[in-house]
Simulated scan of single mutants.
Amino acid sequence: MRILLVEDDAALASAVCSYLEAKAFVVDVTPGLAQARAALAAVQYAAVLLDLHLADGEGLSLLPDVRALRDRPIVIVLTARDQVTDRIRGLDAGADDYLIKPYDPAELLARLRAVERRRSSTSTPVLHFGKLEIDLARDLVRKDGLPVTLTQKEWALLRVMATRPERIHTRENLADALYGFGDEADSNTLEVFISRLRRKLGRSHIQTLRGLGYRLSFSPEEEDE
């Protein structure tokens, strides 16, 4: 899951980024609106964490740009403004949730997951694929009742597919979940992680659709390779 954090407090941005990256999220940080608009034009984000008071303008002015996107990301407003009227204004403008500073990073993580579930095609954080169980709330995977150990990158990739199972995810969309700005990746990196997940989860659970992408299936079939 790739996130855009729009925050001009460098220390806070660094702390939030470090916490979320440790939870297998990919985070891009921009300190202002101009950089945020450029990032939104270049990358398909799953979520935007938006500070309201930025050096180059009001954070809410970014929401029309977000609403115009074909696959609109979740927006959680992060602000020191604690007036009810401010919260109402943010939600009315199109934000999905609102969190008052200072906040516990664990609460931010819980809000992200809750909004993610509401926006996804699943109504439960625990998904069952035959003998495979994926718990999105606790970042756990079990196969045949036994825990499966995943790296952060493997979990980041699986999370994108598990949040919207049966949907075809393009290579570009999945690659966005793995690497942020400044990260380097070989052209075959995605295939390497797909191969690792198949070995750990069961080959047939991740289907390849030639020329389209990949999907996680409740009813696994042979891949089109």
Results as ranks from 00 to 15, higher is better:
Arg2Leu: 04
Arg2His: 11
Ile3Gln: 09
Leu4Gln: 09
Val6Cys: 08
Ala11Pro: 02
Ala11Met: 12
Cys17Thr: 08
Tyr19Gln: 10
Glu21Pro: 02
Glu21Lys: 15
Lys23Tyr: 12
Val27Ser: 07
Asp28Ser: 08
Thr30Lys: 13
Ala34Leu: 13
Ala34Ile: 12
Ala36Tyr: 01
Arg37Cys: 05
Val43Pro: 09
Tyr45His: 09
Tyr45Ala: 05
Ala46Tyr: 12
Leu54Ala: 08
Ala55Thr: 11
Asp56Phe: 09
Asp56Trp: 13
Gly57Phe: 14
Leu60Ile: 05
Ser61Trp: 08
Val66Tyr: 03
Arg67Leu: 10
Arg67His: 04
Asp71Phe: 07
Pro73His: 10
Ile76Tyr: 04
Thr79Leu: 10
Asp82Val: 00
Gly90Gln: 03
Ala93Trp: 09
Ala95Tyr: 06
Asp97Ile: 02
Asp97Lys: 08
Leu99Asp: 13
Ile100Gly: 06
Pro102Glu: 15
Ala106Cys: 02
Leu108Gly: 07
Leu112Ser: 03
Arg113Asn: 09
Ala114Arg: 12
Glu116Ser: 14
Thr122Asn: 10
Thr122His: 07
Pro125Asn: 11
Gly130Asn: 13
Leu136Trp: 10
Arg138Thr: 09
Val141His: 15
Leu150Met: 05
Lys153Pro: 00
Lys153Ile: 02
Glu154Phe: 06
Ala156Val: 03
Leu157Lys: 08
Ala162Thr: 02
Ala162Ser: 02
Thr163Leu: 06
His169Tyr: 09
Glu172Ala: 10
Asn173Phe: 10
Ala175Leu: 03
Ala177Val: 01
Leu178Gly: 03
Gly180Arg: 06
Gly182Thr: 06
Glu184Cys: 01
Ala185Cys: 00
Glu191Tyr: 01
Val192Cys: 01
Ser195Lys: 15
Ser195Gln: 14
Ser195Leu: 11
Arg196Asp: 01
Leu197Gly: 00
Leu201Pro: 02
His205Phe: 12
Tyr214Phe: 14
Tyr214Pro: 05
Leu216Val: 06
Ser219Arg: 15
Pro220Gln: 11
Glu221Lys: 15
